[in-house]
Design a protein around this nucleic acid. Structure first.
Lengths: 355, 355
DNA sequence: GTGATCAAGTTACACGTGTAACTTGGTGTG
DNA sequence: CACACCAAGTTACACGTGTAACTTGATCAC
């Protein structure tokens, strides 16, 4: 039989035995404070503030709302998350190396769109390469969803999140992992679009800049897309592995001084690389786009401002943010991905001066 | 006397009346599961895993650790936060407009440093300008600390956070708000340093680029610092309000074609602006640095790679991240700011070709 | 032999919330 | 009048954790 531990009376002293370390300032008001002030029970407060279908008379409804406003009541996210089993946090693991051109603008839009849908976007540096250790850390937060970027979702990490009760695990792009709904973003689509443009412009010899460093699969994938599109027109593609530094680009351009070695058009997946390349080309006495055309990606502000202005392949960032936010919300509600997803993910070209 | 609500026996059915909406997958293991597997009570598990000074025999300690490892146990952050009254989250409200040059690198370093100190860095878009509405949203998360950037901490917002039980509210730079420990970062220090450099190089006529848009106080503050330093040498400073676009810069440079209107040195608070400016100067047939010297801030990779390479005033980002993380931890532990703060915040100059 | 001391565990409570199940008083219906 | 029904509230529980206070043997000093 169970034994009740309580033996005597409560000690009369004002000590609070099981309270956590005392906070210094006045504590944040709880729903209990609101209830007391409105002269109702806490349950009623909860019903009013969450808009349950439970019937509440208009009079008390207003009293509760007034009390909440006066106390500046904000529900405790931790308690909510504990009760619900999951928080309303959407977690985005980030690294310094944006997987998609224009990632910062994308996140800004996504934040706004998620807020509309009662979700909070939080960004978190993924302090690991393996992905599993990171996933373990994310699991601690019990987020509603984790929005993992391209090529970051290893099967083990996804499985770990799924077991942690994380409902939506979205991965933009391949590889598609079992049990994880995937936003069908083709990370090579911008590359394909740019290549087709350059071919239509008459390019007969291409080059493609491939940034080195971590996350190298992605640039390689794009390079292969360029090769594939160019092959249909029998156009060769030179692969140029490089970093965003003078030492890395200068030798390449130096070799291109000789017309026999020179491509007539270059694709690079980010506008900063295009800017650097154009600078070096000009230094070598080559004209852009007459001698060499250059197309970038991501529509960076500098790309539009410098001369020659950079032709760039990019996405409709606000539109993508909208459908992604909508998809996350739908997944959490047990529905499917937003059907508008595919359409919003088509890239488009901004033709300027450089190519 | 209190009335006990329970009247009859528990119904024999398998229904769980007060459980929240059933999760689909297998739920994440709790400390209870670990306890059961190790054959001890949950309290013992807690003592072992948190390294309390409560004595635990080595044998059970190992059994608990083993059980936790086998189950891949990760504590529930929500429950922890609820119990403790605050989470171990350090929240950084972010906007697209970095307050300090090199903000992205800074955050990357800060994340690593905080992780060392058992804190989690989460970034959050501040979806409001007023600051108060944002603070309300942050209060919901009950973070341990909020690291607010320069010029974002209005007194009301800070007061709101303080009342929410947020211990550390760090604001980099002025204005100093009562009750909020402040990292004494002088946001104009880079401007002063760069100006002194230009004067030493012999500049007799300065210009300063002032980006428009939200958060305009900060650039203005820097402009005033430039004016102040230059005044000591009787050097006039032209104020140039502009955006990062061709249309904005081109007319200014056009006017500078006339030597009578032309400054011999320009300071701008970000390298991208410097890059754009140099491009326009060159287009106008002016040489950098012979006709006009240019100094930027933030040590952007492109600044080092382009020709002329950009002279830039910047901070030791990793060092700052370390002392800031240390300060946050110390504040949470009831101590003062890290004494190494002042020293780490001194900016330095990287002299290259542009000025 | 009798307390006192102590290591090693366990029990019980509190944190703030959402909601199923219950209570209560009022109104209509046969 | 007896009964069902319903609107309007309330009560009680569960979520997972950290820790103060308690229990239980064992050891030790006198």
């Amino acid at each position: 039989m169970p034994v009740d531990g309580r033996r005597g009376e409560k000690p009369p002293g004002p000590t609070v035995p099981h309270a956590p370390a005392e906070a210094p300032g006045p504590a944040r008001p709880t729903s209990n404070d609101v209830a007391r002030r409105a002269g109702v029970s806490r349950a009623t407060v909860s019903h009013v503030l969450n808009g349950t279908d439970h019937p509440v008379s208009e009079g008390t409804r207003q009293r509760v709302l007034a009390a909440a406003r006066e106390l500046q009541y904000a529900p405790n996210a931790s308690a909510r998350a504990l009760r619900a089993g999951r928080s309303n946090i959407v977690l985005v693991p980030m690294s310094r190396f944006p997987a998609v051109p224009g990632e910062d603008r994308f996140l800004e839009n996504l934040d706004r769109e998620l807020a509309t849908r009662d979700l909070v976007l939080l960004m978190h540096g993924d302090r690991t390469t393996s992905g599993v250790q990171g996933a373990q850390a994310w699991a601690e937060l019990r987020p509603a969803a984790v929005y993992v970027n391209v090529s970051r979702g290893t099967p083990t990490a996804v499985e770990l999140l799924r077991r942690a009760g994380v409902q939506a695990v979205l991965l933009t792009g391949a590889p598609r992992v079992a049990y994880a709904p995937t936003v069908p973003l083709d990370p090579a689509a911008v590359a394909r679009l740019a290549t087709r443009h350059l071919l239509a412009r008459g390019a007969r010899r291409l080059a493609c800049l491939v940034p080195t460093g971590p996350l190298a699969e992605l640039p390689t994938q794009r390079y292969e897309a360029v090769v594939e599109v160019a092959a249909a027109d029998n156009v060769p593609v030179e692969r140029v592995d490089c970093e965003l530094s003078s030492d890395s680009i200068a030798p390449v351009v130096d070799r291109w001084r000789d017309p026999a070695h020179r491509p007539d058009a270059v694709y690079t997946n980010s506008d900063p690389f295009a800017i650097l390349l154009i600078d070096k080309l000009r230094e070598a006495g080559l004209r852009v786009p007459q001698d060499v055309a250059v197309v970038g990606s991501g529509d960076h502000p500098l790309g539009a401002a410098l001369r020659p202005a950079i032709t760039t392949a990019t996405f409709d960032v606000p539109a993508i943010a909208r459908v992604v936010a909508s998809s996350i919300r739908r997944l959490l509600d047990g529905m499917d991905l937003d059907p508008g997803l595919e359409a919003a993910l088509r890239p488009h070209l901004i033709v300027r001066e450089s190519g």
